[in-house]
Design a protein around this nucleic acid. Structure first.
Lengths: 135, 135
DNA sequence: CTTTAAGTCTATCAAGTTGGTAGGGAATCT
DNA sequence: AGATTCCCTACCAACTTGATAGACTTAAAG
């Protein structure tokens, strides 16, 4: 399951997508409109900035805004960033791979099945962008 | 991600699938062969018994065994039982549904996307059984 | 050059979950 | 009766999650 933090992140990103190219948006505005605890949202947006998804301006007239075209930012990227692995097992994760202990990947039936699930999920998440969050 | 408990459960079930119709198998044997902490495994197997997946016999010659044909036990069932929801959001879960707060499901882009992911995952997990874990 | 309006950073915390352990109880077989 | 094996309750340390507090930095306005 996506954490609450991830859900907040997506709501905030959807809002910033709506406001794309309209100048910086206050954290407080996002917090109010999307009903996300202010200080928690601060952390989330800062993290997204450090990951190069968002940019910000300080001082009067400042705020947060998308750094790139929302149609170019994959949902999969955000999930990995904020929520972690998409795969159901570390041994089938592309970005968070960890070898299985006590289990030969070449003969583990679960392994193969979870690769299928991963690929099915990625087929969707890698082909949807922030633009698809609003309509 | 599947919890360690879930991974243990699948390993144990795979072992019991191999021994299907060969009489009860000791917890201690499963623990040793699959390298699962004994007392932790006890809890897991007991839970699977209460969920009607396994059955057991006490005393000498006792142990655990599959209650049904492994080809009839869906992987999805086990995941839900031991790990919880398969969907990435409560508002798109079939078995663990919870309404979204502050978010109209009919106009939430994330909602639709996560339904797609859920269906893609279920297409696999609902059509694989314990038999597919061994080969 | 001071005030004010923002975002930035560090630290902390309560509650819940996860992975695991301990030990005795209950059933069953010999 | 005694051995064997599962059953049950309780407990615990470590980690994660969701959230808050407060001081700091940067930038614009006047």
């Amino acid at each position: 399951m996506l954490s609450k933090k991830s859900q907040y992140a997506f709501k905030a990103l959807a809002y910033l997508t709506e406001k794309y190219k309209q100048g910086p948006v206050l954290i407080a505005e996002v917090s109010k409109k999307k009903k996300i605890p202010l200080k928690f949202l601060e952390n989330i947006l800062l993290e997204l900035k450090k990951a190069d998804i968002l940019d910000s301006k300080k001082g009067k007239g400042g705020g947060y805004f998308l750094k790139k075209d929302p149609a170019k930012v994959k949902v999969a990227t955000i999930v990995r960033l904020v929520n972690g692995p998409i795969a159901m097992l570390p041994c089938v994760s592309l970005y968070f791979y960890e070898r299985c202990k006590n289990c030969d990947e070449k003969q583990c039936g679960l392994h193969d099945m979870m690769i299928e699930v991963r690929d099915a999920s990625l087929a969707i998440l890698e082909n949807r962008t922030l633009s698809d969050l609003v309509h």
